[in-house]
């Protein structure tokens, strides 16, 4: 489990930030992206994927959340 921060990028896309490893990357896909259900498996541009417990969408970004690493690139 790692603390990550999700924010909006310049083009409105989600940007993933993992402070521990200074990893900043765009999110290519998020399993659930509706106001009621948000999170699930997220895929990063670098090929890595993380899992956020599905929850209601945060009211405001950036948003810090715990995420589980499923498959890190490298």
């Amino acid at each position: 489990m790692a603390n990550i921060m999700i924010r909006r990028g310049d083009k409105g896309e989600y940007v993933f930030y993992l402070p521990k490893r200074d990893l900043e990357d765009t999110i290519v896909s998020m399993e659930f992206d509706t106001p009621e259900k948000w999170g699930g498996e997220i895929k990063l541009n670098n090929g890595g994927s993380y899992f956020i417990e599905p929850q209601t969408a945060p009211e405001r970004l950036p948003y810090s959340v715990r995420a589980k690493r499923l498959d890190a690139a490298e």
Partner: peptide, 12 residues
């Protein structure tokens, strides 16, 4: 950048 990210999250 750390403090800037923090202020973005906490104070918008």
């Amino acid at each position: 950048n750390y403090i800037s990210r923090h202020m973005e999250e906490k104070y918008g």
